[in-house]
């Protein structure tokens, strides 16, 4: 467990995104002058002689930073209902507070989301791998709602083509309000003056922010 300053975390984060996601070479010249960069070198998280800059430990730590940032984004977007230009700003502050297992709690609360609001993947944490049904979540899959519950679709986790296209064509998109009517034999819900029936598998791919519990 390293104690890192906000600045250090931001550097690790941007390095990780450059290297892991964009498969690019990080721009070292800008960074080298920063004192935070120096600090990271002292902690053994970055190595100026390495091509990818991040050491093995650094890579791990950086991934955690990215995870915190994107979880924070989900949190402010889904739960706190913040709109787009503000999401980034708010989550930049939020993320630095998500330590000591707090990030995992947020992850659990949100139902282990797979992507941030901008669609980038959230690196999985320990809590995601031994993911069990956890009660008292705010964001739940539609299939876990009870009849009478009202929620707002926050994201759909079906990223394979056909299923996603079905959901899109029926208009099951983030922001829409749904009210569950039946769970059995099929999941029946109301959305904007229309009723729909879907099976359990599809109901598991639509995640909603609970607004009203029956």
């Amino acid at each position: 467990m390293y104690k890192l300053s906000d600045n250090e975390e931001d550097i690790l984060e941007s390095l990780w995104i450059e290297i892991e996601e964009n498969k690019d070479k990080p721009n070292t010249r800008v960074l080298k002058d920063e004192s935070a960069f120096q600090e990271l070198m002292d902690k053994g998280l970055v190595d100026i002689n390495k091509k990818t800059l991040l050491t093995k430990e650094g890579l791990k730590e950086a991934q955690k930073c990215v995870r915190r940032h994107r979880l924070a984004e989900r949190l402010v977007a889904d739960v706190l209902d913040l709109k787009d230009p503000l999401i980034h700003e708010a989550s930049c502050k939020f993320e630095h507070g998500l330590h000591h297992g707090l990030e995992d709690n947020v992850c659990i609360l949100l139902g282990h989301p797979k992507t941030c609001p901008h669609g980038k993947p959230i690196p999985a944490g320990e809590c995601c791998s031994n993911f069990e049904k956890i009660p008292q979540r705010l964001i739940v899959p539609l299939k876990e709602l009870q009849p009478g519950d009202i929620g707002k679709i926050s994201y759909v986790s079906a990223y394979e083509g056909e299923v996603l296209k079905k959901l899109i064509s029926m208009g099951f998109l983030p922001g829409k309000q749904v009210k569950l009517l039946h769970r059995f034999p099929s999941f029946v819900f109301e959305m904007e003056n229309s009723s729909f029936a879907i099976d359990k598998d599809l109901a598991g791919t639509i995640h909603v922010l609970l607004l009203k519990r029956q």
């Binding site: 992507t115 669609g119 980038k120 990223y159 899109i168 208009g171």
Partner: peptide, 19 residues
Amino acid sequence: KVHQPIEYIVNLKLQQRVN
């Protein structure tokens, strides 16, 4: 460059405009 399927992004935007 994007991490969501393109049709998802397109439709989200369409829906936003519709709203």
